[in-house]
């Protein structure tokens, strides 16, 4: 079913309407998402909660332009992802900041080099500017004194903070986070989430965060709860 997006604020960062998504074909077909519709407005912090297997991560990968959407309408940063080519998806991803459960930093690069790497996608920014911005970012996540440390010499919370700095490096227009606190103790988890919130607020960058962690729910403007592939409630 194809419907055009008719309603809603044209400034919405994410607009989803009637998304269906299934893995597998034929008899093995397993539908994960049913009629998912929602919007994220500029500057909003939205949490996505729900039990495992409810389709949160799948939804996140669709919004993150990591999977092809086949049914329904999904527009991210004013680009329709329906039937987008792999290259188009890649270009959308360059405007999105990602934070994963695992920090996934390159172990052979220092904190600074990991952040600077992101500017490779933006060759128009001069080298001196790249260096300045990378150290500013690490400063702002409280790692100004760890610039030249390799990831294996940083704690779990510090690594995740480098990952936050990396995600924000290229000034993304949308930040997607998948359980960024899952691998952290409660205090560092709390620190990372608050950091995220503050940075997003000052930059006006909207966040969609998947989380199980009830301790961080208070940072949200809005909480979407998913169950069995459907959005149950939007607070």
């Amino acid at each position: 079913m194809q419907t055009s997006i008719q309603s809603g604020d044209s400034n919405s960062v994410v607009r989803a309407k009637d998304i269906q998504f299934a893995f597998g074909e034929g008899e093995l077909r397993k539908q994960i998402l049913f009629d998912v519709s929602f919007q994220i407005e500029a500057g909003e912090i939205v949490l996505l909660t729900g039990p495992s297997g409810s389709g949160k991560t799948t939804l996140l990968t669709l919004i993150g332009a990591l999977r092809q959407i086949r049914e329904g309408e999904l527009s991210v940063l004013s680009r329709s992802l329906h039937q987008a080519t792999a290259t188009e998806l890649m270009l959308v991803r360059r405007q999105i900041g990602f934070i994963f459960q695992q920090h996934n930093l390159l172990p052979f690069l220092t904190a600074r080099a990991n952040v600077e790497l992101m500017f490779d996608l933006h060759p128009e920014i001069p080298k001196a500017e790249v260096r300045r911005r990378a150290s500013d970012l690490l400063e702002s996540v409280g790692l100004g004194d760890r610039l030249d440390y390799h990831p294996d010499r940083l704690s779990g919370g510090q690594k995740q903070r480098v990952a936050v700095a990396r995600a924000l490096a290229a000034e993304p227009k949308l930040l997607l986070a998948d359980e960024p606190t899952a691998a952290l103790d409660s205090q560092s988890g709390r620190d990372v989430v608050e950091l995220l919130r503050n940075l997003a607020r000052t930059r006006g960058c909207p966040i969609l965060m998947v989380t199980h962690d009830s301790r961080v729910l208070d940072v949200a403007d809005r909480i979407l709860h998913m169950e069995d592939g459907r959005i149950q409630s939007g607070v």
Partner: peptide, 18 residues
């Protein structure tokens, strides 16, 4: 050994050519 990191780079918009 660095498959997750390479996949992360791809997720963030780095190309296969990179």
């Amino acid at each position: 050994n660095h498959l997750p990191q390479f996949a992360t780079l791809k997720a963030m918009g780095f190309s296969d050519r990179y």
